[in-house]
Structures are given as C-alpha cells and as structure tokens.
Design a protein around this nucleic acid. Sequence first.
DNA 1: CTACGATTTTGCAGCGCTGCAAAGACAGCA
DNA 2: TGCTGTCTTTGCAGCGCTGCAAAATCGTAG
Lengths: 345, 345
Amino acid sequence: MRREVTLRDVAELAGVSSRTVSNVVNGYANVTERTRVRVQRAVEELGYRPNVLARNLAQGRSGQIALVVPYLDTPYFSELLQSVIRAARVSGYNVLIDQTDGDPEHERAFIAHGSRRLLFDGVIFSPLGLDQQALVDRDTSLPLVILGERISDGTFDHIGIDDVAASREATEHLLGLGRQRVAAIGDQPYATGEAAQRRTRGFREAHQAHGRAVRDDLIIGTPRFNRIDGAQAMAHLLDLEEPPDAVFCYSDLVALGAIHTIVSRGLRVPEDVAVIGYDDIEDGRFSNPTVTTISPDKEMIATTAVERLVLRISSSTPPPGLEVRAPHRLIVRESTAGRAAQSSS
Amino acid sequence: MRREVTLRDVAELAGVSSRTVSNVVNGYANVTERTRVRVQRAVEELGYRPNVLARNLAQGRSGQIALVVPYLDTPYFSELLQSVIRAARVSGYNVLIDQTDGDPEHERAFIAHGSRRLLFDGVIFSPLGLDQQALVDRDTSLPLVILGERISDGTFDHIGIDDVAASREATEHLLGLGRQRVAAIGDQPYATGEAAQRRTRGFREAHQAHGRAVRDDLIIGTPRFNRIDGAQAMAHLLDLEEPPDAVFCYSDLVALGAIHTIVSRGLRVPEDVAVIGYDDIEDGRFSNPTVTTISPDKEMIATTAVERLVLRISSSTPPPGLEVRAPHRLIVRESTAGRAAQSSS
DNA sequence: CTACGATTTTGCAGCGCTGCAAAGACAGCA
DNA sequence: TGCTGTCTTTGCAGCGCTGCAAAATCGTAG
C-alpha cells in the first residue's frame, strides 16, 4: 500500500509552503485568489485528503464526541443514535458510543475527573441512574450536554421534552376516554429515578385537573423501562381486585410488555384496558394493537445536542448552560382508540 | 485545564529515557524487572495515560474499525452493534459506525480504492445491496470482514449462518405442522438480493424434501425486510383466492408486519395463519403473539468478526480468507405453536 | 584481564499537521 | 525614492508517541 499524499507533497507541486496549503485546505483568511487556485489544483491532482489524526494531535483534540446511553438495543436510543451520528458527522466529529447498562458507577466514571479525557472532546449524556452528586463531582472542564429530564445547573446544556406536561397529556387522554381506574407503570421513587418521577407528577396533575383521586396502588414501580418490566407490572395490576381499565406506561417498551400480558390473559386492548406509551418507537407503529404514545422530537433533540456540544467544545469561555425544551405530541393509535385509529400514523 | 501527563514526565520522574517508559507501558520484551518496577511506580504516581492519538499517528494507524450496516434502527443490527463495540474495545479499537441506508453506491464507496482510508484500519461489513462487482473493484489492501450470506473469494473473511439450511428448517417446521399452503415473504430475485435468494432456496428445498410443490405465487418479494414490507406483502397474500395458511418471513420485522396485517383482518395467528420469522430480535419475544424464529448466534458472529479483523489488520502478510459458519437454532414460539408455546423462551 | 556476544537502554528522527511569530510583498504616501 | 502599515506567506517548533539503530551495560569465555 502506497504512502498517502501529505500536505508537503501538495506544497511541493504547488510551489508554496506546506503552511500555505494548510491555510487553503482549512479555508483560513488571507490567501490570494491566485495561490488558492494553484493549491486547489494541486490538491485535486494528487487527491490529497487531510490526515485527521495528525490534525487532531496538532490541535490537541480528539475529534470524537462520546454518546453515553444506558442501552443500545433499546429502540429509543438506537433511533437517537442515528440522528446523533448524522449531526456529528456534519460538524466533523466521530461518535464514540458507550453503553453504561444503567450502571451508576459506570455513568459517574464517564464524566468524573481524569476519566479518559483524551478519548473525546465532549459528552452527550443520556443518564439513567445518575444522581445529583455525580453531577457535582464531575469534571466541569469537560463539555457536556445532558439529554433527559435533568435541569441544568448552568455548567452544561440540557435538552429534553417537558415530561410533566407530556405525562399530563397522556393521562388526560385516558381520562378523556372515560376510563375510571387509570394506572401508571414505571415509577421510580428513589434518587436516580427523577425522569420517572416527573412522569408520575404529570399523572397526578392530570387527575387533579379532572377532579379525580389517584389510587396509589395503581402506580407501579419498575426497575427498568423494558418489555419484561411492563409485562410483570401489568400482571400484578390485573391480579388486583379492581384492576385498572387504562394504563399509562412510561415507555413504549413497557406498553408493549403490558399489552402482551393483557392479551395473553384473554382481555382486549383497548376495550378492557386502554394502554398508552411514551417515546414513539417504530415498534409501536406495527405492533398489535398499535400503540398510542407521546412522541418526542428526536431529530431535534439530537441535532440540538450536537450543535450545543460542538459550540461548547470550541468556545474558549464556556457558554451559559442552556435549557432546551424539545417539542412533543400525542399520537393516538389503536391501543387507546381501537381499530378506528387504524388510519392514523 | 491542566496539561496531561506525558511519557516524558514519567521518564523524568523514573530517571529513565522516555523510550524505556514506552517499552514498559507497551509490555515490550527486554526490560529489567528493576526498571519495570521503577517506571510502573512513576506511571501510577503521575496517573499517566497514553495518548491514543499520538500513538496511532506514530504507528500510522487510526485505531478505528468501521462497522458498516444498512440500518441502525433495525433491532438485528443494533443488537449486533452492541456486541461488536464490546469486542472491539477489548482489542483497543473504537467502532466507527456507518449507516448506508442500503444504498449500493454508498456501500461501494466504503470499500472502494482511496475512500477514507485514514479513518479506519479495517471494515466489518454487513452489506445489503452490494453486488459482486463492488467486491471485485474493492481496495484489497483494506482489511475486510463480511457478515451475511456472501462467500469469501479468499481475500477477506466471511461470517454468517447457513442460510439455506436455516431456511429449510424454518419451512420444514411449518410443513411439519401440517400446513398446506406455505408462503414466503422477502424474496429479492435480483443481483443484490443474494441473501434473500438463499432463503428462498432453503424454502424450496424443504418443500422438495417433503414431496410438496412450491406455489410460486406464494413467494412474495419485498424491497426491504421491514415491518411495513411484511404488512403489505401479507395483505397481498390474504387477497389471493387461496390465501396461505403459513408464512416464512425473511426477518422478524417482516413477520411482525405480517402478523399485524393478519390480525387486523380478524384472522388468528397461528390458527388461521402460522408465521415464522428470522433473526430472533427481542421484539419477537414480547410481541403478541410471540414470534417463532431462526436465531443466529449474534454474539459469536460479532466476536469472531472483530477477532478476524484485528488479526487481518496486524498481519503483515494477509491471512487466507476464512469462511466461518456461525450456529443457529429454531426457537418455537406462539406464532406457530399457539399459546402452548408460552413457556418457551 | 580482555574480548565478545547478548541484553538493555537511549537518542534521534519523524508520523502529518497546526500555532506562533517573523519575514516578505505590496500599496500608499510623504 | 524611502518609509510605513497592511496583507500574505513562510519557517520552525512541537503535539506525544514509536521505529530504528547506535550506545551502554552485562555476563561469560578465553
């Protein structure tokens, strides 16, 4: 395999210094049209491509941004990943993926002091079990953007939808259908379960707005937001003396698991139990029945996250922490509206 | 942000040359125990971490391997991705992900001459629409491992399950249930559809082995292996005068789409139509009904792929192309066995 | 005690690029 | 014509590491 073309090769051919070639390639100011053209021509003739590695070394950066997510095989995250990769590429960054498996220790290590600083220039973090303390202990010189439900303390950006409002809408949708006993699956009443707790808050607010009492025994906690968690929680709910006739699930996967249990007990969705999910993953559009859900604008979340992170990386003085609210909407499908909803997306 | 600790810093503290520190850090031979210990201590005291970038630059490699897949939000690929990342990290490589969207042009460009050679040291490629010509035109100096159904020409490794055999088993399972009209969804009778064609071959072989004729109008082509493709193809099949009573779907997503259509027509799975899928994605374990499927050993595929690629990268003389058959097995679930299968995983 | 081969350590150059500051070119003006 | 200020271009050093080959050290045989 032949040696790659370097800046120097181009410089020689164009009859200028390698520094000038660098200037042209990087579009720096103050290069005469004449030399620019000459260099440009040489670049093309030799098929020169900058060596990213060398550039990064010289600039003291790595050219990578890390995307830290709890699970990769969760559709929500893999859909997000796609958008992040696309956006990062536009800005000349590679995405380094890290799956934490929701392990708080692992999550903490990623943003703690020292860590593998050299491996990435910034982090887009979608924490699961990260507690407030980890954020306090973090290396504040590491550019950080957090996705999800955590409020920024001003030293990083935060992007997420309004979970409380979204959860309220979801619950109101169920109440609006005339359901009498609305359950919630996914609460996590402990320090690292902030995201879940906001959804529970929305759930309660909706009841309040409708002048309805929340039956606390219908709020079921789950360790994760998985199909299996949903399936088990639903089984528990159906075993109650007065089982619910509607369920707000804190993720579409939970909803799919719940539906699985309901149907395998010989009950019907939505006739016997209406189900609403959260995330709008593709699965929910083709499941049986299709799943009514809260759809966050994932593309916008990903794009904004990368944008902000890149800005943060290239700023000499750190920009103030931004609090970005991404839009969301309720998408009604069969699991609450029945077959009638079939035509909707 | 303070400067990072370098080799030289360690060298100074340990009272040796930086080259010796490098030797110790990299575990090279011929270092006295005495100096090794001394250096080791200095490394720990300063918290030295090698700069991967500089190392790679000096070694003329990038430290990245590319994983090229058609779609990332397809569960099969995101499950594979996880395993690949894990395996690559063990070998000190980063995974650079590229989604081709199945675009043949894009796929071709990735392994063609020149390409972005500097960005990655090797490629793990899961092609979709890649035709044989692209492989001929490829840059043979780029270490390559191909996943899927293509046979190696000796210049790269190939890892995949035996699709023909697996498809035969799947079809035989349906025939063994006593089904009379078995359909297949997913054929792609054109140059880039090799994978699909092997499945069709297995489908035919199974019929032959059972002394049954294949009804060609029951073999439906689909552009992709998606839910929507499965849903549409199934709709077409159900509109036939003699609709099938069993369907072999070339992916679990196709199967999920097909089931969706069947159920929304008021028919039952598996009573009216039995459905079998391919890939064993998690969705199929919690869908309603759960999906009988062919389960490839993804972990083994990923691990072997990385292993072979790393070997190929570090070999000065390219090793012969290996043809690896990963194991697969049939997992019977509700979509063919009915509720009775509930207990199986 | 010297010589020689084997082992361990070192110095230097260079991977390909960019930051920095200085040099050169050029135009305008006295 | 000489001088100044501005715009372009250049040279050099160095990012942190490793390849290479020479130098130093060591052990042992003569």
